[in-house]
Amino acid sequence: MSASQVLVLAKAPTPGRVKTRLCPPCTPEQAARIAAAALADTLDTVTTAAAASRILVVDGDHPAPPGWATLTQRGDSLGDRLANAFADTWAPGTPTVLIGMDTPQLAVSHLDVARGLLGTAGGPDAVLGPATDGGWWTLGLRDPGHATVLRTIATSTATTGRRTLDALRRRGLRVHLMPELCDVDTASDARAVAALCPPQSRFARAVAAEVPVPASVAR
């Protein structure tokens, strides 16, 4: 198996700039604390997973764990920032797996499978993890140069994942689909994902503390 690297694309958890779709019912400060917990759990998982290198590709100012590299996001659109994350960390012969900070239920086994597939001779050229909202939660590429397709794909739509898969296949790539995961965008997403996390995870504790209980439940 060849060496591989893992990128985490993230936004510094600043009130008013992250998880804005949690507001309401959350305040911007509550949403930021939930985002911070999701990012912390994600970084912990990636730190535990085997990888040749781990890189936090961040919008804003946020520290990376010890042993990680940090890279500032570059580009105006999300598609450009994603493509640039692959381009700016490109290393000859090194497959790259990119994830975001919105799936704190991510397990080490997810990363191990993605890395193993890309690092095995005769394996797929790409791995893509679809999200329940129509997007994707991970993209791994044996040759990160193929990430250029992301520049022309509209993000945050119900067809983003399908269009990404189609674009990769049009380039002749063999794509392995990973399990579907739920991104955290809304309060209902946060509750659903928290239920999938260990009870003492930062994210599960943050959701319990910061997401108001619906009035219909609180009665």
Rank of each mutant, 00 (worst) to 15 (best):
M1H: 11
A3E: 15
V6Y: 05
A12D: 03
P13K: 07
P15L: 03
P15N: 04
T20N: 06
T20V: 13
R21T: 11
L22R: 05
C23K: 00
C23G: 03
P25K: 04
P25Q: 14
I34G: 05
A37G: 07
A40K: 10
T42Y: 06
L43E: 08
V46D: 02
T47K: 02
T48Q: 15
A49F: 13
A50D: 15
A51H: 09
R54C: 11
I55A: 11
L56T: 06
H62N: 03
H62R: 14
P63D: 15
P63M: 06
P65I: 10
P65W: 11
W68V: 11
W68C: 01
W68R: 06
T70M: 14
T72Y: 04
T72F: 00
R74K: 13
R74H: 14
S77I: 08
S77G: 09
D80V: 08
L82F: 11
L82C: 13
N84I: 07
F86D: 05
F86L: 00
T89L: 09
W90V: 09
P92Y: 02
P92T: 01
G93R: 06
T94A: 12
T94G: 03
P95V: 01
I99F: 08
I99R: 00
G100W: 03
G100P: 03
M101F: 13
P104E: 07
Q105T: 01
V108F: 02
V108T: 15
S109R: 14
H110M: 06
L111C: 11
V113K: 06
A114N: 01
L117V: 10
L118F: 06
T120N: 07
P124A: 12
V127L: 04
L128T: 05
G129M: 14
G129T: 04
P130G: 11
P130E: 12
P130W: 14
A131Y: 03
T132H: 10
G134A: 03
G134V: 01
L141R: 05
L141G: 09
D143C: 08
G145Q: 11
H146R: 12
H146D: 11
A147G: 06
A147L: 05
A147I: 04
T152L: 10
R162F: 12
R163G: 10
R163W: 02
L168Q: 01
R170K: 14
R170E: 15
R170A: 15
R174H: 13
R174P: 00
H176F: 10
L177Y: 01
M178V: 03
P179D: 09
P179Q: 02
D183G: 11
V184F: 04
A187N: 02
A187F: 00
S188C: 01
A190H: 07
A194Q: 09
A194K: 00
A195L: 10
L196R: 13
C197Q: 04
Q200R: 09
F203S: 04
R205Y: 00
A206R: 02
A209K: 09
A209T: 11
E210Q: 14
E210R: 04
V211R: 06
P212N: 08
P214K: 05
P214A: 03
A215D: 11
A218T: 10
R219V: 08
